[in-house]
Nucleic acid binder design. Structure first.
Lengths: 159, 159
DNA sequence: TCCGAATAGTATCCTTGTAAACAATTATTC
DNA sequence: GAATAATTGTTTACAAGGATACTATTCGGA
């Protein structure tokens, strides 16, 4: 079927114009693609990217304060509260209220949490390996360097 | 004040371990940083990144089908419906139901939509200019190339 | 032609994440 | 040393986005 004049533009020929030159837009597009891979890999598990990175950081920094964790991962305190509540409910994390400051909360993994982390550690580290996402090793290294520069730039001094 | 033993790790010294080598994690961290800049720039307006990119693509591709738009921008149809409803309510976009297929919807900017786009075009294009995000021009070019490779890779053939 | 299958978009419900007001505790100031 | 301010985390109300089921229309085959 060949319409006399295709009244509109179809999928392939959509023109994004200067959008492909917008760092913000392209970051989002790339993230969607990469997260897609993540969810495909962890399809039949209950592992989610945010949750897992929280477990990871707690494992690397035992007795970390909840607020510090939130700031480090750029997760808002209100959301961190919910994340931690779920992890505690699942028995992966324990909360410790230190006597020297009873407002604060320190977090640590339970044995179950450590086991969970170890079970999925290797999969997590290799989900985004170069060949999986269609880049060369060199490109991946380059990309990570640039992303780190973006992410860890002092945010307070931006005008 | 020097505690005898700092019971926990504090902000700066939090160790992320291999997380900084995870493409997915770093994409998210970078995106948060970059979006932060976006919202700072458009603080007193009602411009949002998703909405604006939708307007942009409609402007470049008049009479684009709503579904095609959704697929192009990796926005789910259900969500696109809501986005379009709001844009129509704001008078920026008009919906056209073509007689040759009355299931579908084609989208175009209204005059008001075009004005809106023009008013913010320049700001939008330069929010993420190199120096603003702390990269050199060359690095930005490199980054955009890598992100495009990630984003526009054929997603169907991934195992 | 008529009935089942495919397609486009929408309504409903649910998850994820945020903002703003709040309670509890600790630090400061007079 | 009490009153005030600042800090920490939580609660509540809401916005963004997705999954699923549904409606309307078009396509395709008997």
């Amino acid at each position: 079927m060949n319409a006399p004049f295709p009244t509109g533009v179809e999928d392939d020929s959509v023109d994004l114009g200067a959008l492909t030159g917008s760092v913000g837009f392209m970051l989002r597009m790339a993230q969607v693609a990469v997260y897609d891979q993540f969810f495909r890999e962890f399809a039949n598990t209950d592992v989610r990217p945010g949750e897992f990175s929280v477990l990871w950081v707690i494992a690397m920094n035992p007795d970390l304060r909840q607020g510090t964790l939130a700031r480090t991962l750029n997760i808002k305190p209100a959301h961190m509260t919910k994340l931690v509540q779920r992890l505690v409910r699942e028995g992966l994390v324990k909360r410790i209220v230190p006597p020297e400051d009873r407002r604060s909360v320190r977090l640590a993994l339970t044995d179950k949490g450590r086991i969970h982390l170890n079970r999925h550690r290797s999969t997590f580290l290799h989900v985004h390996d170069a060949e999986r996402i269609g880049l060369t090793d060199a490109e991946t290294t380059q990309l990570l360097g640039l992303l780190q520069k973006l992410a860890f730039k002092d945010t307070s001094s931006c005008r």
